Simulated assay, not measured.
Amino acid sequence: MKIVFFDARVWRYLVSAISKVIEEGVFVADPEEGLLFRAMDPSHVIMLDMRFPRDSFEEFDLEERRELGLNLDDVAKVLRRAGKEDRLEINADENSVSFSFIGKGVRTFTLPLLDITAEQLPEPQLEFKAHVKVMSDVYRDTIKDVELIGDVIRFVAEGDEFKVSSSSELGEAEIIYTRESGSLVDLEVDGSQQASYTLEYFSDLSSASRVADMVTIHFSTDMPALVEHELPQGAKFSFLIAPRVE
């Protein structure tokens, strides 16, 4: 197996985010679908889903489906060495996976494969009543703002307004986005929708937004939220998180 992606930093920020939530995981390389990752955290509060289609790679040399079990913290440490102009080459044999940064020379790091199998997680069947699309930097700043105050993030969507807030004994943070301000790329909502979630997961995964163009939040009142990141080359990273119902 040999695959090449044009920008190693995309993988750097994604795996760094994932490793904060899941310690070990399985990347699935498929000749037709590309490179996939889907897993739940140990508490089953959140499900992560990363998809790089075959066409997103400069080179995708794979004859049969492979499951690559890896310690994600170790992979994240390796990928932190990715430079600004580096391409990423991933090679795998029966016992190990190597990550090569191709830029000013070729730097290769090899990690052992773990004897674990991919979780068989069904595709969620949910209908959402609120859909909010924002630029990735707006999303990231929002997470930074509310994490100053509390450990719960609350979404409210109604009319042409999207509000994010958090409160605790320290005080309250509230950020309001509207179409008129230009902070919302798109907003569709059926009536008034509001829900709360554990902020820690949003904070842990926020680095993924550094390599996304847009972030879309789908939610309904007191229901799970789906947060989708639009990545380069048609790739996507999303997470589905259970609500906190007081």
Rank of each mutant, 00 (worst) to 15 (best):
I3V: 10
I3G: 01
V4F: 06
D7H: 07
V10C: 01
W11N: 10
S19W: 07
K20R: 02
E23A: 08
E24V: 08
E24D: 04
E24P: 06
E24R: 11
L35H: 04
M40A: 12
S56P: 04
E63R: 11
R66M: 12
N71V: 09
N71F: 13
D73N: 03
A76F: 06
A82E: 02
R87Q: 14
I90P: 13
A92R: 04
D93R: 08
S100I: 09
G105V: 05
V106K: 14
T108R: 13
E119M: 11
L121R: 11
E123R: 09
P124A: 03
E127Q: 15
K129C: 00
V134G: 05
M135E: 15
R140G: 14
T142Y: 02
I143R: 05
V146P: 00
I149A: 13
G150D: 00
R154W: 06
V156D: 02
A157I: 07
K163D: 14
S168K: 13
S168Q: 10
R179S: 14
S181W: 01
L187V: 08
L187T: 11
L187I: 15
V189T: 06
Y197C: 05
T198C: 10
F202N: 04
V211T: 06
D213H: 12
I217N: 06
H218F: 15
S220L: 10
P224G: 12
A225Q: 02
V227T: 11
H229C: 06
H229W: 02
A242V: 01
A242E: 00
P243S: 03
R244I: 00
